[in-house]
Design a protein around this nucleic acid. Structure first.
Lengths: 167, 167
DNA sequence: TATTGTTATACTCTATAACTATA
DNA sequence: TATAGTTATAGAGTATAACAATA
């Protein structure tokens, strides 16, 4: 999607374009933000998927692994190893539902919540440094626009999606 | 990287967060924008990589394939099939450099330029529809911020990168 | 010997299919 | 028979290594 166009307001040949393609700016920015998260997650012993799970589980238990997978746009088979690890480290609980023993009830442990909060705080601290480079007026519009566009239904249409991995 | 946090200003458990992680909004937005480009590119018979190449080649010839690959953050082996196809369709020229016959000089053909312009016009038309959903004031700040952040050196640090594919 | 482009191979991540256990 | 979870297999996409041509 023509990432490089991001650096140019005009093409290398001088043909004037009103602006680079939106995706050509947004996608590389997203990659950069993920790359910036990586060392923080490493320091907390979390993969991107694990962090995603911790963020989503939050204080509210989730009734099935399939529901969790759907919610975070992952394949249900893809999160199993992640849950195995998080459970082994006692960051989440995975208890069989007494009412339907096929189901595993998922919830955060205190330690899981603590780790998630610590990781998120560190991540957002780094993001603040980036946002501080923006004029205050632009920054507000940027965040509001991100929120708006992220929530647009025509952009949120469900597809499996590659998920958080960023090899 | 916790895409879902994008839909929430607060977590499901009620813990108030100032905002979702930046990456949790930007990355899904980037995926959505790429997905929106896809049908347009299909209609023009272009893959995302091919479009990226056409955008970069522009009117200015590039001296080596390796330089092109580096510029668009692709592996040099990855673009060969793309160049093969574009050349076969006479959208680009790939001529051995008389001064160093190891080198292939790359340039756009007239038809290649025409196709690129048509595709980009259609893509940006679709993007305008999205941007029109934003308040005029926010929109300006959004685009300016995107430009600024995309150009930030600490975010542009070169890494191979997965490139434009979005399976 | 070093470099450009190419081909062949291996690796990573993801999705699909097959299996177990509960219902 | 249908569903939740799991395991095993296969498929994309990418990177690495080996190669041919030219310098």
């Amino acid at each position: 999607m023509a990432e490089n166009a991001a650096d140019r307001g005009t093409t290398s040949g001088g043909r004037p374009t009103a602006r680079p393609d939106l995706a050509a700016m947004v996608v590389p920015l997203g990659r950069a933000l993920m790359a910036a998260e990586q060392p923080v997650l490493d320091a907390h012993g979390l993969t991107m998927w694990a962090y995603t799970v911790l963020l989503y589980l939050d204080e509210t238990p989730v009734r099935t692994q399939a529901a969790l997978a759907e919610a975070i746009r992952a394949d249900k088979t893809r999160i199993i190893a992640v849950l195995d690890d998080l459970e082994a480290r006692e960051l989440i609980r995975r208890q069989p539902d007494p009412e339907d023993r096929r189901v595993r009830l998922l919830s955060l442990t205190t330690e899981g919540r603590r780790l998630r909060d610590a990781a998120q705080a560190a991540i957002q601290e780094g993001e603040e440094r980036l946002l501080s480079r923006l004029p205050a007026a632009d920054r507000a519009g940027f965040l509001r626009s991100l929120h708006t566009l992220s929530g647009l239904p025509e952009l949120t249409a469900r597809k499996p999606g590659r998920g958080p991995s960023r090899t």
